[in-house]
Design a protein around this nucleic acid. Structure first.
Lengths: 233, 233
DNA sequence: CGTGGTCTTGATCAGGATCAACCCAGGTGG
DNA sequence: CCACCTGGGTTGATCCTGATCAAGACCACG
């Protein structure tokens, strides 16, 4: 089950944390041509909504934000993709146009994997199929949570929750700052609110001693109270 | 690929529209014990949030609403399950506790399918796995749309959109009324708003000639304008 | 005939959106 | 080297959507 093919040691597909650990050496061999990741700079758009996806993207390094654009042009950030995550598989599987755009926010190394190969793996490799299904189900569960939150919680609660999620996703550096730098506008586009509201509420949380701010860097100083402010659990 | 096993003609698993069409006769045979659907009356709760799911449910007839309960007790309706739809697979696959509750709103016939069988089908039957994956991806796409809508659209727009979705899901009767009767509160719990707001906005849409109301029955009288009111596409 | 659930309408209130200024830092080009 | 510009960030003032509260109507049902 676990692949040991030396040639892939440095590729996106050799990652004991990713679903590609379920690929056999033979299956890996089919991807020989796609072994090398491409390098993308901050700001690069990897694909955009309405694009017909002919394959999926596998993040080896860096961070990508995935977002939808509302009819009035405002972004809604759906999730972030980082090392080991895959992007675009939803559209490939559903045979839909892409329903999100993907933009690099931390310089990234990303591999491509053609749709045909993905589909063939799913059909012939049960463990791979199950792993992909599990990823999708996890995402679906999170999406459902998010729907409920955004429909029922206040902006303040959602912001507090978003900060906690960011910490869980990106972890913290030596000083305790969450390992991601987002603009206020991007924060607003996660939470689904206006930039000004994010600014006001961030400084409110800071006043109350729940977080510390350093430019775009955020540090959680009192996680218990932040969780309570988020009304989680 | 397509099953022809006579004994299952009346079971939930014999349905040319459902994913179970991909099961082989042998696989169907494993479900012999679960062939007969159970009957559930309106109001029955099939499972609740936080419940550990030992299998999934397959709707043969009727309608079930699936919803999450927010921390303040308010429901958020996530989706409806009707003929051919399956419920609870997300939790089984993710090996999570149920993240929604399921309550019958139209008398239903529902089969049970143990988790072990589901998992084994996914692993050994590539077409079944792919079909299940496709369902999950479709749901995920809808969830993502919903997140964006709820974060960015007004209540009026969301209500208009919800009515259109209900029509697409449940179709209309001879008189043009959407084939589902929801309370105002349930409508509110789809849209993510207060009951009173739904009432006011429904009569507003009625005044403007976009819909007709007859108790809980809704008829779309001017779909083009309703779509515009929903700011769709 | 009362009772509980649903529906409706009106009045009030507040959470946030929006609009308008201004600051600040970091480019850019003359 | 400086004037300028641009993109974020911040703050204050104002407005409005939609939540909440309150009260009554309607209806089905035991």
């Amino acid at each position: 089950m676990h692949n040991n093919n030396k040639a892939y040691k440095n590729s996106c597909f050799f990652n004991p944390e990713s679903i590609f650990r379920f690929l056999t050496d033979n299956e890996l061999e089919e991807l020989a041509f796609y072994r090398e990741p491409d390098s993308y700079k901050r700001g690069t758009i990897i694909f955009e909504e309405q694009h017909r996806m002919k394959g999926i993207y596998v993040v080896q390094k860096g961070v990508v934000k995935m977002y939808k654009t509302g009819y009035d042009g405002r972004e809604q950030i759906i999730r972030f993709a980082k090392t080991g995550d895959i992007m675009g598989f939803r559209s490939v599987i559903s045979n839909d146009l892409a329903c999100t755009s993907a933009k690099v926010i931390d310089n990234a190394l990303i591999c491509y994997l053609p749709a045909e190969n993905l589909m063939s793996f799913v059909k012939s490799n049960g463990n791979f199929a199950l792993a992909l299904l599990k990823i999708t189900c996890d995402e679906l569960g999170e999406a459902n949570d998010f729907i409920t939150d955004i429909a029922q919680k206040t902006v303040r609660e959602r912001l507090a929750e978003a900060i906690i999620h960011l910490k869980q996703t990106f972890d913290v550096d030596e000083l305790g700052y969450v390992n991601i730098a987002l603009t206020r506008e991007e924060m607003a586009n996660i939470v689904g609110t206006a930039t000004e509201s994010v600014i006001r509420l961030l400084s409110e949380l800071k006043q109350e001693g729940l977080i510390e701010l350093n430019g775009r860097r955020i540090k959680i100083s009192d996680e218990a109270r932040l969780i309570r402010a988020a009304n989680m659990f």
